[in-house]
Computed example of a mutant assay.
Amino acid sequence: MLDALTLDQMRTFVTVGESGSFRGGAARLSRVQSAVSHAIANLEAQLGVALFDRSGHRPVLTPEGQALLANARDILLRVDAMRARARGLGEGIELELSLIVDTLFPVEAIGAALTDMRSTYPNVSIRLAVAPLGGPLDGLVERRFTLGITVGEDFRDPAIARRALTTVGIVAVVAAHHPLGRRAGGGALENAELADHLQIVLSDPSQRTTGRDFGVLSPQTCRVNSQDTKHAMIRSGLGWGRLPFWQVERDLDEGRLVRMPTAALGRNSQVGAEAYLIHRIDEPLGPAARVFGEALARLCR
């Protein structure tokens, strides 16, 4: 009977499915392997389908098991979210608000929202970090931070809730005295011409982009570990690259940087990327975190 299904059975099923073996699942759950095998067998009997093919050296999910694994994950995430909400109803004010922000997001807006939060909760300490690419998502997945801000659609996790905030303009720029900068008024560049010049690229501190590059058009790259370093290298004339418009607006207005003369990097060398406020669905947000989130959303509007 389906009514006899338990959350423990589903959690055991998901753990075994993710670990790839009954032994691995038992180790993760700190149980003996026979208890895990028994729980899976009971679940299969109640569902009326085989979840694993046990004919080989290691158990392999059946097609039915693969389909139902997604349902089990979804149920567990919803239960975790319900538990977190229930815990949050009785919690008091946080001692610390920890926040990790994508380098593409304007940090002054973070400061303004934190100031707003502190006017309501002046005794809450703040821990703030800035990281590129997969860094903010890793910070939440690894439980090192309570809130994060990520920019773009490339970094998602089913355990992380997202709230859209605003669009960040990302513009391809080069120093005015760079050879590409001197071409700014002389017709559009093709990709082959871009490949003749060094591109300044931001490195990912996480492992989420291993083997992948975002917007890299030149085989010649200079990889740096901070947005400020990337900005400085582009301004120096070392190479070209993409930076958030808020960071280079003054440089563009005063002629130190120019937009890349190519349509291969967006209309007018600019694209928009959505910024999201993120948090774990299984950890309740305290009062200070909620006030900060609302303040930031108002500022972004």
Rank of each mutant, 00 (worst) to 15 (best):
L285S: 10
E94Y: 07
R78C: 07
M10L: 07
A35E: 05
V130R: 00
A35S: 12
A273Q: 15
L189M: 04
A192I: 12
N225F: 09
L68F: 06
E18W: 11
G134S: 10
M82V: 06
D282C: 07
E96N: 06
A72P: 09
A4V: 12
S226T: 15
V291L: 05
L51Y: 10
M82C: 09
R235N: 04
M117H: 03
G20W: 12
E294V: 14
N191S: 12
R208D: 09
E96R: 04
A41E: 08
P158Y: 07
L76E: 13
L140Y: 03
G186W: 01
D8M: 05
L29C: 11
T15W: 07
D138H: 03
A112F: 02
N71L: 13
V49D: 12
G185M: 08
G65W: 01
L243M: 11
A70D: 10
F105Y: 06
A172E: 00
R87Y: 14
G241W: 04
R11S: 14
G92M: 11
R298M: 04
N225I: 08
C300L: 08
G139W: 01
A273G: 11
G169P: 02
V201I: 10
I200D: 05
L285N: 05
R280M: 06
D196M: 10
A84S: 14
G239S: 10
E153P: 12
V49H: 08
G185I: 10
A67V: 06
E254V: 03
T210S: 15
A35F: 03
V258E: 00
E190R: 02
C222F: 03
P122Q: 15
T62H: 05
A112Y: 08
A161N: 15
R208C: 09
V107I: 09
A297Y: 11
V216L: 02
G92Y: 11
T262I: 01
A289M: 08
D253T: 14
G24K: 13
D251A: 01
R144A: 13
D74H: 04
G266H: 02
R28G: 04
A297G: 12
D80E: 15
E294L: 12
D138A: 06
H57W: 15
V258H: 00
I75H: 11
P261L: 10
S21Y: 05
R83Y: 02
E64T: 13
P132G: 09
F155V: 09
A45W: 04
F52A: 03
R156C: 11
V130P: 00
A273D: 15
A39M: 14
A27M: 09
R87V: 15
G17A: 12
V16G: 11
R242D: 00
T115C: 00
T6E: 08
R83H: 09
R212D: 10
Q227V: 06
R78V: 10
A4P: 02
G187A: 05
Q220Y: 06
T167F: 02
P205R: 01
P219Y: 02
R182L: 00
A188D: 00
A109V: 07
S21D: 08
V60P: 08
I100F: 03
Q247T: 07
A84R: 13
N123S: 15
